[in-house]
Design a protein around this nucleic acid. Structure first.
Length: 1012
RNA sequence: GCUCAAGUGGCGGAAUUGGUAGACGCGCUGGAUUCAAAAUCCAGUUCUUCGGAGUGCGGGUUCGAUUCCCGCCUUGAGUACCA
């Protein structure tokens, strides 16, 4: 019987689906275990081999935990709102729901054929109204909450209203907007409803605010910081500008400290925790207000200008020799003196063109301008020059720095460059070459009342003195800011919000979900409103509590609805709870389900979510806990980032040309160059080594070929023509293992074939490649390892691999590639190794005419092989070292074949060990062995150490630490006897060549090392 | 610039507490089988001037270092000069 993997895999996938083998129960006496993959977005391109890597790892773990007696929850679903479907809709007019449905079908088919043990009965989709009903509900809860710093948790907005009614806001200690004026209970009660709502909005955890956003006119949308690369949109590379816009935001900063502290409680990698810490960006220091000394422009009557700065080093305040403002700082125009105006304005203009990224990374170029204004030092009252410099960013801190050149390298470089004094305030420290940035072991000097103090003491004392002057106070700063929650897009959750008098009102819970309206086109409106502005039926009737036609808006009973939709992170911030009770219509998940499953025990996904999804969902979970909806503080106990699978891209070189002397193109002119378009040259060693331009022989041949192509028959040998080969990505499916391009295939490509119809391909020897069948010419491409992505045309689709080798081979191979967390290149050719292993395994169990298993008593060697495999595989899975366990299986099968093992007592438990990795073949053999129940719930074999006890040890005998030969000695042999035996051995004597060793190191059971 | 990873044969990688470097697999070479091919099986495969050398480079600790320490180089990922 042959190993017919296609038949076997289909059979068991169908069987598992029919029997609901992997359906998880919400009530069980077994301990629970929750294994989750990061929410996939169902893109139109389908899966490539990089996607299932994490899914396979989590599936192995989930299956292993079932063998270990756990009730395992291992669900899957789709984060199905998103920009790609919307962009496709804009291009084709197809409703995003339709394309999303198609994409999900493709995903599901691809996932199913890999044999995952998902409980599909719990599938969720964020774009499904029965799901986003609860996303809307959570949004309403956030709106109806404020953060009480005294109780350190979110509370219902009602508790805040009752405080306002009783005593005003003087004693309220809340996370809220910066500019809130004080009011008494009497004030509050006399405010109009609109005034009250405006005030409450400044306290709510989600609120409307005029915020500066990254507006991308070309995409008609706002972009998150991480969607902008080098100042342009990541998608499409369009220009991005700062623009004020009314946006929904989330007061995530209220949770900054808890988000930081919580990291200590969870089992994530240090690098991931570190990036969250950096993102939250806690710094302890002080705010200091510097008064601007009046000058020709900065002498407004009555009020003096102040420059507030935040510093982590208030102890160095006597080292301030200048101040630096971000060029965009509001005060710049108000304080710059007339004679510096021209210079400052020119500098601001120049800065605006630099991307923020550029300003950050480039430390070598020091630029700045003096405003002509001076600020007053709070203690010495000396004038301090105020500069602007683009190393200070407007968006961070206060957008201004008190520059202490002796203590900060950037300030130091700036001062050196502009000849600003660098006062030294550190005792006994040389600052003639560079600044001294360390906080440890400094003694402050030249600093009046701070002299002789350490960093800690001086900081404390400086803050006290600043507070006395009312020019500063101690402050903890977080860089985490309000998270923008609006998107000017169609394909997202609609807000359950309508507007009365411009004030947002929540729609009551019982009327949810508010469904996305139908629109004709998916673009923003001509007036710049979001796509929902195109909907005709998008108004809220407060009498019928339904969505009605816009024409009915009367602003008394019928009101306009919100036009923005929610961002991608809305639905993904809580989905892990929905899996616990996916069909519940009354609550987002029942209390029983929430209590049973608690939180995710193992979460596997890409590191790209480090500061987005993983921070936002922690925030929502903490909020839901505060409001009593869940009991947990952290959603993901253990988290593993799988590494990227890299693709091997292929390049061919398109020729482009430069004429050194244009006047010499006389007789043929531009027509000549026109005829030389769309020509590609085969990759060669000289191309890969950047020696193309010096390969005279080849260039000569190439040029005569070009003349031939252009129909040029004169003697011009094109000396003035410089040929520049440009690398162009080519789809890897048209390239074989020897890097040869399938030219006819490329020309028939449905997507790009047209572009190459008239292309000319030139071989290694400089001649045109003939495309009639019997030509032996080859066209070679260059290879490079890059991120696997559709845009680089290097994706490898798992479908073909499953057809050719089977899902079990794919699963094993993906694990075999290397450590889960590390990035690694994909090479399909290597899959024959694991596939060959499965064939050998099959032959071990199945003879020519059926099962090859006997009741034979296992030999000592059989037992040793089995038990060392049990031990190793169990250790490997527990430590997520899946690659090494695949090797272990191979070694075990090689050994069992060598031992000619047929013993059921060995071969049966071995199947269980392997089944998490290769579930189909093991399930088939398990049933061939006569079992009626699925192998998936069979207990994991128990390791028994007695089978690994050895009676002898093959000692490595080293000389000066270098192993020279080995010697088999009894295990129980004592040190002295070992030394005697080794020293008497002929090989030892030969190696010593008569020398007497200085020392002999013997570690019984390990090694012998002879020194000297 | 800063932060975090990672550098081991032709390639992916292994060596879990400092103890036989290169397990396992790919590829390659030779052989068996076959009319032939595929498939399968067997043997070999770090380099080498055959003394040795060797885990990015230079030091150090140790009887012994891929593993620990110091300094550097390169590559990748992230990034917000948090003042």
């Amino acid at each position: 019987m042959n190993y017919n993997f296609n038949e076997i895999e289909k059979k068991w996938q169908d069987h598992w689906a029919k029997q609901q083998t992997f359906k998880a129960k919400n009530t069980s006496d077994l301990p629970k275990y929750y294994v989750l993959d990061m929410f996939p977005y169902p893109s139109g391109a389908g899966l490539h081999v990089g996607h299932p890597l994490g899914y396979i790892a989590s599936d192995i773990y989930a299956r292993y935990k079932r063998h270990k007696g756990f009730n395992v929850l291992h669900p899957q679903g789709y984060d199905s709102f998103g920009l790609p479907a919307e962009q496709y809709a804009i291009q084709t007019g197809q409703h995003p729901a339709v394309t999303t449905e198609e994409n999900i079908k493709t995903y599901r088919r691809q996932l199913d054929q890999i044999g995952f043990s998902f409980d599909w009965s719990r599938e969720v989709r964020t774009s499904d109204p029965s799901y986003y009903k609860w996303t809307q509900w959570i949004f309403i809860q956030l709106f109806e909450s404020w953060y009480n710093i005294d109780s350190n948790r979110a509370e219902s907005i009602d508790t805040l209203i009752s405080v306002f009614t009783a005593e005003g806001n003087a004693k309220v200690n809340a996370v809220c907007d910066d500019a809130i004026s004080l009011f008494s209970a009497a004030d509050w009660n006399s405010f109009s409803s609109k005034e009250q709502q405006e005030i409450l909005l400044k306290y709510r955890l989600t609120y409307l605010a005029e915020t500066e956003v990254n507006w991308c006119p070309a995409l008609g949308t706002v972009l998150a910081n991480d969607e902008i690369v080098n100042g342009v949109s990541e998608r499409g590379g369009h220009a991005v500008m700062r623009k004020k816009m009314t946006q929904w935001s989330m007061r995530i900063s209220a949770y900054a400290e808890r988000l930081l502290k919580g990291l200590d409680q969870i089992d994530w990698t240090d690098s991931l925790k570190e990036s969250q810490r950096n993102w939250i960006g806690k710094s302890v220091g002080a705010t200091v207000k510097f008064k601007v000394i009046p000058n020709d422009t900065a002498s407004v009557e009555g009020e003096l200008h102040q420059i507030p700065v935040f510093t982590t080093r208030p102890d160095t305040i006597f080292g301030v020799s200048f101040m630096t403002l971000a060029p965009e700082h509001d005060l710049v125009s108000q304080i710059t003196t007339d004679d510096h105006k021209a210079e400052v304005e020119a500098y601001i203009k120049a800065t605006a063109k630099r991307s923020e990224r550029d300003r950050i990374a480039d430390v070598k170029t020091i630029t700045g301008a003096f405003t002509g204004a001076y600020a007053e030092h709070p203690f010495t009252k000396e004038p301090i020059p105020v500069w602007i410099g683009d190393y200070v960013l407007a968006g961070y801190g206060t957008g201004a720095v008190m520059s202490v050149p002796c203590g900060d390298q950037r300030d130091y470089d700036f001062a050196k460059h502009f000849n600003i004094p660098i006062p030294n305030i550190f005792e006994g420290i040389d600052i003639s070459e560079e600044a001294y940035g360390a906080k440890d072991n400094v003694i402050i000097a030249n600093s009046d009342f701070l002299n002789g103090l350490s960093y800690k003491e001086a900081t404390k004392k400086a803050i006290v003195a600043l507070e006395k002057l009312e020019q500063g106070e101690g402050k903890t700063n977080y860089r985490l800011r309000g998270a923008v929650f609006s998107r000017q897009r169609y394909w997202g959750e609609p807000f359950p919000v309508y507007y009365v008098n411009d004030m947002p009102q929540m729609i009551a819970k019982e009327h949810l979900p508010i469904r996305l309206p139908e629109i004709e086109k998916y673009l923003p409106t001509e007036t710049g409103e979001p796509p929902l502005g195109r909907a005709d039926v998008w108004a809220w009737c407060t009498e019928t509590n339904t969505v009605v036609a816009n024409t009915k808006v009367n602003n008394t009973t019928i009101f306009p609805l919100e036009l923005n939709t929610m961002p991608g992170w809305a639905g993904s911030s809580w989905y892990f709870f929905r899996y616990m009770d996916a069909q519940n219509d009354a609550v987002f998940a029942s209390e029983n389900a929430l209590n049973y499953w608690e939180s995710v025990d193992l979460y596997i996904g890409g590191s790209e979510h480090a500061t987005g999804h993983l921070l936002y969902s922690r925030f929502w979970v903490k909020f839901l806990k505060d409001r009593g909806f869940v009991k947990i503080e952290e959603p993901f106990k253990k988290l593993i980032n799988q590494g990227m699978i890299l693709g091997t891209s292929a390049f061919m070189y398109r020729l482009s040309y430069i004429y050194i002397n244009e006047s010499e193109i006389d007789e043929t002119g531009t027509e000549f160059l026109f005829k030389l378009k769309n020509i590609y040259i085969s990759s060669s060693e000289s191309l890969n080594n950047n020696e193309f331009q010096s390969n005279i022989d080849y260039l000569g041949k190439l040029k005569s070929t070009l003349k031939e192509i252009a129909g040029l028959s004169n003697n011009n040998n094109l000396e003035d023509l410089t040929i520049i080969p440009l690398p162009i990505h080519v789809k890897v499916q048209y390239v074989n293992a020897s890097n040869e391009l399938d030219i006819p295939g490329l020309k028939n490509d449905s997507e790009f074939g047209e572009d190459y119809k008239n292309a000319i391909f030139i071989s290694d020897d400089g001649g045109i490649i003939s495309l009639d069948g019997d030509s032996s010419d080859v066209f070679k491409v260059s290879r490079e390892v890059e991120k696997m992505s559709k845009s680089k045309y290097n994706v490898v689709n798992p479908d073909q691999i499953v057809t050719d080798y089977g899902a079990d081979s794919l699963r094993l191979y993906e694990m075999f590639l290397g450590p889960l967390e590390q990035a690694k290149p994909w090479n399909t050719a290597g899959i024959t190794g694991v596939h060959g292993f499965l064939k050998k395994l099959w032959k071990l169990y199945m003879g020519e005419d059926g099962l090859n298993i006997t009741e034979a008593t296992p030999t000592k060697d059989n037992l040793k092989t089995l038990h060392k495999t049990i031990k190793k595989v169990e250790e490997d899975i527990e430590s997520f070292s899946f690659n090494t366990s695949v090797s272990t299986f191979m070694i075990a099968v090689n050994e069992l074949i060598a031992q000619k093992c047929t013993s059921k007592e060995i071969l049966e438990p071995f199947l269980v060990l392997l089944s998490p990795y290769a579930p189909h073949i093991t399930e088939e053999l398990w049933h061939q062995l006569g079992h009626q129940h699925s192998i998936s719930t069979t207990p994991f074999p128990e390791f028994d150490a007695q089978h690994l006890v050895e009676s002898s040890k093959n000692y490595p005998i080293s000389f000066n630490g270098k192993m020279k030969f080995t010697l088999e000695l009894p295990m129980e042999m004592q040190k002295e006897d070992i030394e005697k035996t080794v020293m008497a051995h002929e090989k030892t004597i030969a190696h010593l060549e008569g020398r007497t060793p200085k020392k002999v190191i013997i570690i019984p059971g390990k090694i012998v090392n002879i020194v000297g």
